[in-house]
Amino acid sequence: MKSFSLLCLICFAISCAGSKKIVTSNENSTSTDKENSKNLDSIIETPSDTFSIKDSLNITPTKEDVKNDEVLKDKITELKTKFLNRPNQTWNELLDLYVSEEGKVDYKSFSKEHQKLLDYIHNLSFIRSDDTFESLSKNEKLAYWINTYNALTIDLIIRHYPLKSIKDIKDPWNQRLWKLGDKWYNLNEIEHQILRKMNEPRIHFAIVCGSYSCPKLKNEAYTSENLDEQLTDATKTFLADDKRNNISSNNLELSKIFQWFTKDFKQDGSLIDFLKKYSDIKISDKAKKRFKDYNWDLND
């Protein structure tokens, strides 16, 4: 009955949805009690010119469903999966248009469709708006947060464009500008408090800080179904890129990412053990390591 009530609440709320633009905040923004009381409505409402969550639903609980809690759970899972995957159509379109195969971002052209990006972020907010988010699989959560981090990074840069580096922005990773569900987030929190705690070191080659020395931004959305393949591809591509890493059997010139997050790469052995898994080069266990300077110029 609890699951039935939850599903009814979701369906009812969505059936009442209208259209609204994404809400953003400055660092010191706070929500009033009045805003909190309207939070559910503001999250569920979806921009009319993009993916319509309301239109995507065709799930109505029946009396028979009430007798079968497992059926209800399946329906809720189906509901969440629709929310999780459909918004990526917009994200895929934007990435395909404005991110090259080499991972360079055309921020100038991207900025002309800033509202479309904000609409996508709005849909990300809806996905995060319910406690049922916590019951998503690990891969679904990873894909969600990777796409979210990259979308928010591009949004941050577009807000300040033109600029030469993301570091030209004051405290770029600490600005709490985005409301996902009922909470305001910044990029540092998503990276360090959420993604890194999921014990998947390959995320470091999927999330992109908008800089030249970063891994390249993939011009497609990450999905739970293809996540392992996508993360492996991103890791191998980054290691093989001689502009970011120079790897030989006995000498390793590595990105500072491997220095900053050494602990993440030692979960199942040494750093060299990790590198061996994703490099075609036979690396000696005694290979000498040094770390390259990091170029913070914009990845455009």
Rank of each mutant, 00 (worst) to 15 (best):
N186I: 05
N188K: 06
L177W: 00
D168A: 01
K167G: 03
E189V: 07
M198W: 10
K197N: 07
L180M: 14
N199T: 05
W178E: 06
K170L: 09
Q193Y: 14
L163K: 02
L187G: 03
S165Y: 01
L195V: 08
D182G: 09
W184I: 07
L187T: 04
H192E: 13
R176G: 00
L163M: 11
E189D: 14
L195W: 04
S165N: 01
W184Q: 13
P162R: 06
E200V: 14
P172V: 04
L180G: 10
W184V: 12
Y161I: 03
E191Y: 13
R176V: 00
R196K: 02
G181D: 10
W178G: 08
R202L: 05
R196E: 04
W178D: 01
I169N: 11
Y185N: 07
K183H: 04
W184E: 05
P201S: 04
L163T: 05
R176Q: 12
E200W: 12
G181Q: 10
K179A: 07
P201D: 08
D171Y: 10
E191F: 11
D168P: 00
K183V: 14
W173Y: 05
L177Q: 13
K167H: 01
K197L: 05
E200P: 15
R196G: 08
S165R: 00
D171T: 12
Y161R: 12
E200Q: 14
I203V: 11
R202F: 12
P201A: 01
E200C: 04
P172N: 04
Y185G: 09
K167C: 05
D168S: 00
S165V: 04
